[in-house]
């Protein structure tokens, strides 16, 4: 049974993607073949498997792990954008993801246009949007760029638009995927303060991050994902320690890529 204090609950969750093994896109005969016989040139890739944990309201979960460990898949499952292939995901409250890049927004249109699209996508009503707009603009610091083309902004500035909109969207569960990595020092500070305020106001948060500082300072729990499975769930400092140990171990991808100091 789920207690009312539970915000998120995962039971044996797995997500499987079909990944191309051929260099080319699937052709019409291959599609037909797949639909008729079930044979496919694609192979199954489990981005996540056998993941179970529960998060109480007001907790802040830091999700860490190497690239491809399943962090973004987990966030999309929690935001209910995708469904698990197996297992159960329970989400109690309104949630949405803030992604690192403002993908999906319109580079050809103005910053103001993108603010309103973003707000609408987050489920904000028109009247409410009008009311919130000054605060969103103020938060983003993009007041001078409102009528500039969105695509002309630098990626750091661009990421502020969905972030500022989401901050004002009255979400119960806040999820961020490497959101503040692209921001400059000042904006990162602002984000950090916002997250702290969220935490104080009792919002549940899930932050996927490579910023170990952020995880250590902000999170009450941490999930260390390795190869699509939970390698550790619990104390953030311990999670970071294990992740660090694995990364610097001889033969690990990270150790091969860049020798640690």
């Amino acid at each position: 049974m789920t207690s009312p204090a539970t915000a998120l609950r995962l039971e044996g969750v797995g997500k499987c993607y079909m990944v191309s093994t051929l260099a080319a896109r699937e052709t019409f005969p291959q599609t037909l073949n797949r639909l008729l016989t079930g044979n496919s040139s694609r192979r199954a890739l489990w981005a996540l498997r056998g993941l179970s944990f529960e998060l109480a309201r007001g907790e802040v979960l830091g999700v860490i792990g190497a690239n491809g460990a399943g962090k973004s898949t987990l966030l999309m499952l929690l935001a209910q954008i995708i469904a698990p292939t197996e297992g159960r995901v329970e989400v109690h409250g309104k949630s949405s993801i803030f992604f690192q890049l403002a993908s999906g927004l319109r580079p050809q249109l103005t910053v103001l246009d993108n603010f309103s699209v973003c707000a609408a996508l987050l489920g904000i009503e028109r009247a409410k949007f009008r009311e919130l707009l000054p605060a969103m603009v103020e938060f983003s610091g993009l007041g001078d760029y409102l009528h500039a083309r969105y695509g002309e902004l630098s990626s750091g500035l661009a990421a502020r638009v969905p972030f500022a909109a989401a901050v004002h969207a009255k979400l119960d569960i806040v999820m961020a995927d490497e959101m503040i990595a692209v921001g400059d020092e000042a904006f990162q500070q602002k984000c950090f303060k916002t997250f702290e305020e969220f935490r104080r106001s009792g919002k549940t948060m899930v932050l996927a991050s490579h910023g170990m500082d952020l995880v250590a300072k902000l999170c009450t729990k941490s999930l260390y994902l390795r190869g699509g499975a939970a390698a550790y769930f619990g104390d953030p400092i311990e999670a970071i320690r294990r992740y660090g140990a694995d990364s610097s171990a001889p033969g690990s991808a990270l150790a091969r890529a860049e020798p640690l100091l």
């Binding site: 319109r106 050809q108 249109l109 609408a120 996508l121 904000i124 949007f129």
Partner: peptide, 27 residues
């Protein structure tokens, strides 16, 4: 988001408006 909620219509309006605005841009 239910079809009878104002936020559904605001989103439809916003998506339509931007789609329309982008179409002939650049010509």
């Amino acid at each position: 988001m239910k079809p009878w909620s104002p936020s559904y219509w605001f989103l439809l309006w916003e998506l339509t408006r931007t789609e329309f605005k982008v179409r002939d841009q650049g010509t």
